[in-house]
């Protein structure tokens, strides 16, 4: 039983990180129907910027509490990623808004390759370690262990997601975003500046990605220019699982994917009588995804969309 609790905790923490990144995918998709492949790379930039700032602080010899240094790093990461998200949309996606959708997908892949190699040029090829600025406290209950960092990640993700939901559902900006997602042309006619709304969507997504990037690097203790690829892929899977384009779906999909991976790695051996081991963890996750999509072709919370010609 304590093992199951532990696996659920593992899965939920991992899942809340996936969910944060998945939000960026789903928001962009909701409005542009574009898989923003470069989103994972924005996450990586967030982690890298934060570490660069932390490194600068360590170099300057300033005597400050670790958490404050990380906070500075986080703010810098958000600032840079917001700019990055804005520029990516402007340069790579806006010229293609009326182009075939696959063209934009290829630019997204191109941007992702560029960002990866740019990060490699700037920060080098080595893994960068996240210095132990945050004191780690372990809490044990009923055989399961949870750390203060894990609790913090879960709470912060929940707050951010709740905030985003409020923003989308309750504010004028949110209403404008929903309107743009539903019908861009008509939203334009209703006096909504569609370009601004799309830019803002990218900016919000990038800010969330920056936070997720810092979380990942602090949680696992390292960052690398290649880290965005897998994270992005997992988050995208999560977004599809929940129903891409649907904000609540991305959260649900993220949490679910985290738990599925955890339970998959933990129990797939027992489930298959030892035939398949934890190396089939991703197979299990994709299998669940395919099963969900076969039963509900638009994801768990996605609405049945009419294909646009």
């Amino acid at each position: 039983m304590d093992i199951l609790t532990q696996q659920l905790i593992n899965g939920l923490v991992l899942g809340s990180i996936y969910a944060l990144v998945a939000l960026g995918y789903t928001m962009v998709y909701g409005i542009l129907e574009l898989i923003n492949f470069a989103h994972g790379e924005v996450t990586m930039f967030g982690a890298m910027i934060c570490l660069a700032v932390i490194g600068a602080f360590a170099g300057s010899g300033a005597d400050m509490h670790g958490a404050i240094i990380v906070l500075f790093g986080l703010l810098a990461a958000i600032a840079v990623c917001v700019g990055l998200g804005f520029v990516i949309e402007r340069v790579a996606y806006r010229p293609l808004r009326r182009a075939p959708r696959l063209a934009a997908l290829i630019t997204a892949i191109g941007v992702s390759i560029v960002l990866q190699n740019l990060a490699m040029l700037i920060w080098g090829k080595q893994y960068i370690s996240f210095p132990p600025l945050l004191p780690l406290v372990r809490y044990e209950f009923g055989g399961a262990v949870i750390t203060n960092l894990q609790i913090f990640i879960m709470i912060l993700s929940c707050l951010l997601m709740a905030g985003l939901l409020l923003l989308i559902k309750r504010t004028r900006l949110g209403r404008a975003m929903r309107a743009t997602a539903q019908a861009q042309d008509i939203a334009g006619l209703m006096g909504i500046n569609v370009n601004t709304i799309i830019s803002l969507t990218f900016i919000i997504g990038a800010a969330l990605a920056a936070i997720a990037g810092v979380m990942v690097s602090a949680y696992y203790g390292l960052a690398h220019y290649y880290m965005g690829f897998m994270l992005g892929l997992k988050a995208f899977t999560a977004a599809v699982l929940g129903g891409i384009g649907n904000i609540a779906g991305a959260m649900l999909g993220g949490l679910l994917l985290g738990v599925i991976e955890s339970l998959g790695a933990g129990y797939i051996g027992t489930l298959t009588g030892g035939f398949l081991g934890s190396h089939y963890q991703d197979v299990f996750a994709f299998f669940v995804l395919i099963l969900v999509l076969v039963i509900r072709p638009s994801g768990l919370l996605g609405e049945r969309v009419v294909e646009r010609a």
Partner: peptide, 18 residues
């Protein structure tokens, strides 16, 4: 690879249909 990625972006931006 940096140039490769840039080329992908540029070609698609200027010739979206390929």
């Amino acid at each position: 690879m940096l140039i490769f990625g840039l080329a992908l972006v540029l070609i698609m931006v200027f010739r979206p249909a390929g």
